[in-house]
Design a protein around this nucleic acid. Structure first.
Lengths: 377, 377
DNA sequence: TTGTAAGCGTTATCAC
DNA sequence: GTGATAACGCTTACAA
């Protein structure tokens, strides 16, 4: 590479636009190239910093500074740059910015499913904080599949996200290794992890289930059934079951396997759970549902059977979905801080990214829960 | 820039790693730089293509080809590259890839709210197709605010998304201009736009509301109230009201402004709507709710009042949420193809991006709706 | 089939 | 305070 080479390159680059009062001292052999790229960024939206610089009569560095750190530039320069940016309709290229600065403004979020309100409340909290902080959210689903999660993590790390939020606390070894190696801050949620990857924000599924079961036991219920969601590949479900069992032990009640009803998701499954429970143990006097829709379905089934709640059977739900306070009787629920979890998780993650708040490393934040006592118990 | 300069640069770059059986013919003055970058990519996750190339004893271009277009490389080379990638744990940098190729694998989605099931079903469809096609989803909320939407569009264009999905059909002039200038394909949804930006996939809110109202009218209801969600900054709500009014006209019924109940969102609002309606027009004999939660709330309120449905009042809902088929009586609803809209929108957008399917430009796809006739009417 | 060189659009760094 | 230059990590274009 010699002098002339460098010149050619420069000429090719500069000739994209002609600033007022500046002669075009080039266009020898690059006509074709120029037409192509000129067309590509016909709209100012695709213009480059170089174009702005030329128009403002400054260097690209001045444009860069004027845009990302205005104080490091004189008022006059700032003015000229801002004007040029507006005239052109220039939009800074975040890709180039990230590549060059090795800083990312993107946060990756992985949830089991994007259409389950359980997660969407948390996503809401995340989304609000993240956007307010100038970050962008990348979202992907992983089902209840660790391998799928690993794939998505790989993709997100490839996109060089600045942080990762995982609604899950169990990961493949490979996933853990990649995250460790990448040095990207991570918040886990959905449960309090035994072995946190980095940070975690959640409530405790086992504590919550235990508290509700204890509550029911103390009210005098002796045959408390538990409608249990799929525990395969789901530590949240497993922990809820654990909490239920622990409470029984503490209550001095012998756990009856027939009272643990394995159920699918959704209202229909809740209805079935009622049927199964009463069939297995006719004297069942309370049903604790491991999910909100489950409880709603159970409610309607009980109503259909003409059962009084709590007369014939008491009903309690793991999640406080809106529907449950509009039913009659209103249903006792566990209120989980889902929105707050999102807010807090985002705040912590962004602190780590922006302020290098390394003291947060390893924090596991328990945002607790609340039993909302209503008529059904 | 002269020969020696070039050499220095090269040396600095190459000395990051030492391939087996390759002497390190450098390390003169770059010790410091090297330590820094070596540390930064200690984990192979942050390694560069160059590192893989060195290890495999090939050029970066061979690595690049082996990874993105394996057939353009000999079997042996492919093998060597794959091995090196695995050994190092290399993850290609999507940022650099996109910047260099001016192709993006990111799609931006803008919805009014991420925690409303109305949108999440569509997001589910989008998400599945997008991920299967190797794209990534960026999500942001815009509320019901055009200016907010414009801001997000600006950010997304800055991130150089390959496509845009807007759950909204009304935009600021500025937003339209930016999108036009950027030449990024767009799908609008949520309504059938009068003035499509590019492509659109939806059902017609006015047609749906009209169909349901006609259905009620034909059943003989004479005083059909309409619980109307906020119409400010929301063409979907406005169109639903239009459809209702048009149906009344077609039925030969004179619209009664007192029967149009402006309501907030949520079940509580649905309950209030019932109260308002009967207060304003005691002889009201049907209530058509402009949203699913509204209908659920209205249902419970009617139940509380001991009203027979449809004996005292018929009830119909704009959206077919699960709850409504578990109530007794079951509620008549409008089933909207929300999930399919997501799938179709993603497919069209990706066709445009990948296959340059320009014939799709301008398509407005109407995925229709369905009246689910149940006991409440 | 493989490699070399230049460039994607920005920022870090170091002169001035 | 401002600018020139190299670099971020990859791909395009072209040469071998």
């Amino acid at each position: 590479m010699d002098e002339s080479d460098t010149d050619t390159k420069k000429a090719a680059r500069e000739s994209g636009d002609t600033a007022p009062g500046q002669s075009a001292a080039d266009d020898t052999q690059n006509g074709l190239l120029e037409n192509a790229s000129a067309k590509r960024r016909s709209g100012g939206v695709n213009a480059r910093m170089r174009d702005v610089a030329k128009r403002a009569g400054v260097s690209t560095m001045t444009v860069s500074r004027a845009l990302s750190d205005p104080d490091r530039v004189s008022a006059e320069m700032r003015e000229r740059v801002i004007t040029a940016v507006k005239e052109i309709g220039y939009l800074p290229n975040h890709l180039a910015r990230s590549l060059s600065s090795t800083r990312s403004t993107t946060i990756g979020l992985i949830v089991p499913s994007v259409d389950n309100f359980i997660y969407t409340q948390t996503v809401k909290g995340l989304s609000e904080v993240i956007r307010r902080s100038g970050f962008q959210l990348m979202v992907a689903e992983c089902g209840h599949d660790e391998d799928e999660e690993e794939e998505v993590i790989k993709t997100f790390l490839g996109h060089r996200v600045g942080g990762l939020i995982l609604y899950n606390t169990e990961h493949t070894e490979e996933a853990r290794a990649m995250i460790r190696a990448s040095d990207v801050p991570v918040v886990e949620s959905g449960n309090l992890p035994r072995r946190p990857l980095d940070m975690a924000v959640s409530y405790s599924n086992s504590e919550a289930a235990k508290a509700m079961t204890l509550y029911l036991g103390r009210l005098g219920y002796k045959k408390i059934a538990f409608a249990c969601l799929d525990t395969r590949n789901n530590d949240r479900s497993r922990d809820r079951r654990e909490g239920y069992l622990e409470a029984l032990k503490q209550l001095g009640q012998t756990p009856d396997p027939r009272l643990i009803i394995d159920t699918a998701r959704g209202m229909a499954a809740g209805a079935e759970a009622v049927a199964h429970a009463v069939e297995a143990v006719p004297e069942v006097d309370a049903l604790f549902c491991g999910g909100g829709l489950l409880a709603a379905g159970a409610f309607f089934e009980c109503q259909k059977r003409g059962w009084n709640m709590p007369g014939r059977i008491a009903l309690a739900s793991f999640d406080d979905i809106e529907m449950l306070h509009h039913l009659s009787p209103t249903v006792t629920t566990l209120r989980l801080p889902r929105y707050d979890i999102g807010v807090r998780a985002a705040q912590m993650l962004i602190s780590r990214i922006l302020d290098r708040a390394d003291h947060l490393k390893g924090s596991v934040v328990d945002l607790k829960f609340e039993i909302i006592q209503r008529e059904s118990t």
